[in-house]
């Protein structure tokens, strides 16, 4: 009986000592959230451009270039 207890104690001690060897990665795994709000209309889809993406892009390009005063004074 005594030997059995000794064996059990030795086994549990060995198990607790070896527990550190089985270390698992503890870095949190980030999961990308998925947008769960309302769907948005794109800028060219309503209003002045009526779905004409090319016209909208051209309008934006003109506005951006309008910010360059070196070009404006040429």
């Amino acid at each position: 009986m005594k030997t059995r207890i000794r064996y059990m104690l030795a086994a549990s001690l060995a198990a607790s000592l070896l527990a550190g060897c089985g270390e698992q990665p503890q870095v949190a795994k980030y999961e990308d959230g998925k947008y769960s709000g309302k769907a948005d209309t794109r800028p060219w889809e309503a209003g002045a451009f009526k779905g004409d993406k090319g016209a909208w892009e051209q309008a934006m390009r003109n506005r951006v270039r309008g910010q360059n005063e070196y070009k404006r004074v040429e």
């Binding site: 800028p43 309503a46 002045a48 451009f49 951006v64 270039r65 910010q67 005063e69």
Partner: peptide, 26 residues
């Protein structure tokens, strides 16, 4: 943007310090 205009803060900046729009054009 839906009206084909840029943000007002940049468009009315008097010294054109603040620019807005496509990153490559800026």
């Amino acid at each position: 943007l839906a009206e084909g205009k840029l943000p007002l803060c940049a468009e009315m900046c008097s010294t054109k310090a603040l620019l807005a729009g496509d990153a490559t054009e800026l």
